[in-house]
């Protein structure tokens, strides 16, 4: 029986030997690695961009608010009562009550129409209750049900979530997220096929060798091993290449983006792939390399039998 240390040594040897072979014939391997790298960089890059967009909108997200314009018949006291009821709700962070007179005062001070208003007998402003949802409930669905329940209240003339555009943005982002998944799935499949095809060609090139190894008692595992390690190296190098492509692209974009941010009085800067994201990219790439070669090996090795 083979001792574990010998076993590990053999694996290391095959691992390094396959790497050596790849380095010795770089051109054909580079093609495969480039295809893998680009195919993986595309969905990864889009994912990073989407994450950045999400980060930006997350800041607006917190600002989601519902304005309740009350009926003129509602007294200040009744309005205060309503504000207190709302304050007790779990899904509401804070509530601001602007009475009719406060609204008038504010308008008078902030607009130039102070004198014009003096002419009016009645205060034309309704009382307003501004509701700020908690962070947990600050998503479209919850906010929308909240809005619907407010509309039913007898005191409320008009309940308004002035964030239709946010809804659209969410929808677009959701679409984008799904699109990226579909793209990632399709490109992963193509990576699998590219690796599989490269390994298939490698198997065909070494047909004689495989036949001879089978003749003198090489096990399937022994024959499979170098091809699987080749797939591993393709996966690793393709993953590294795609990481570099994504990181480079983000770096190229970060200049213009921070300029843009300054124009908006923000110090926002693009964030690239984080550590765990990078690990996932590499892991996925290695998995695809291994899976592609595994498929090729199991489909084509059995067909080679010595006679």
């Amino acid at each position: 029986m083979i001792s574990p240390s010998v076993y590990i040594a053999r694996h290391m040897q095959v691992m390094l030997a396959t790497l050596g072979e790849m380095i010795r014939s770089p051109m054909s391997n580079l093609m495969t690695i480039a295809v893998m790298g680009i195919a993986l960089a595309l969905p990864t890059g889009l994912h990073v961009i989407l994450k950045n967009v999400q980060q930006v909108t997350a800041q607006w997200d917190g600002a989601a608010q519902i304005s309740l314009f009350l009926k003129p018949s509602v007294t200040d006291k009744q309005a205060d009562q309503l504000a207190n009821i709302l304050r007790k709700r779990q899904d509401i962070k804070s509530v601001t009550h602007i009475t009719r007179s406060e609204a008038l005062k504010e308008f008078r001070e902030n607009s130039g129409f102070g004198e014009a208003l003096e002419a009016l007998e009645d205060n034309p402003f309704p009382a307003v209750i501004v509701v700020f949802p908690t962070e947990q409930s600050d998503n479209l669905l919850t906010v929308q049900t909240m809005l619907a329940s407010f509309k039913q209240r007898p005191e409320v003339e008009l309940a308004q979530l002035d964030m239709q555009w946010l809804k659209r943005l969410y929808a677009i982002m959701d679409f984008g997220r799904r699109g990226i998944w579909v793209l990632a799935a399709m490109l992963s499949l193509s990576v699998l096929l590219v690796v599989g095809n490269t390994i298939r060609l490698a198997i065909q090139n070494r047909r004689d060798e495989i036949e001879i190894i089978k003749l003198i008692g090489g096990t399937d595992a022994f024959i499979r091993r170098p091809f699987l390690y080749t797939g591993f190296w393709y996966g690793l190098s393709g993953g590294i290449l795609s990481w570099l492509l994504v990181t480079l692209s983000i770096w190229l974009l970060s200049g213009p983006v921070s300029q843009l941010a300054t124009l908006y009085d923000s110090n926002y800067s693009l964030s690239s792939l984080d550590f765990s994201g990078s690990l996932i990219l590499l892991g996925l790439s290695i998995f695809l390399g291994l899976a592609g070669s595994w498929i090729a090996v199991s489909r084509h090795l059995d067909a080679i039998e010595p006679d």
Binding site: I2, V6, Y7, A9, R10, I212, I213, I216, G217, G218, T219, F222
Partner: peptide, 9 residues
């Protein structure tokens, strides 16, 4: 080759 296959040191 036969020795490599049977995993000799």
């Amino acid at each position: 080759l036969p020795l490599v296959i049977s995993g000799l040191p």
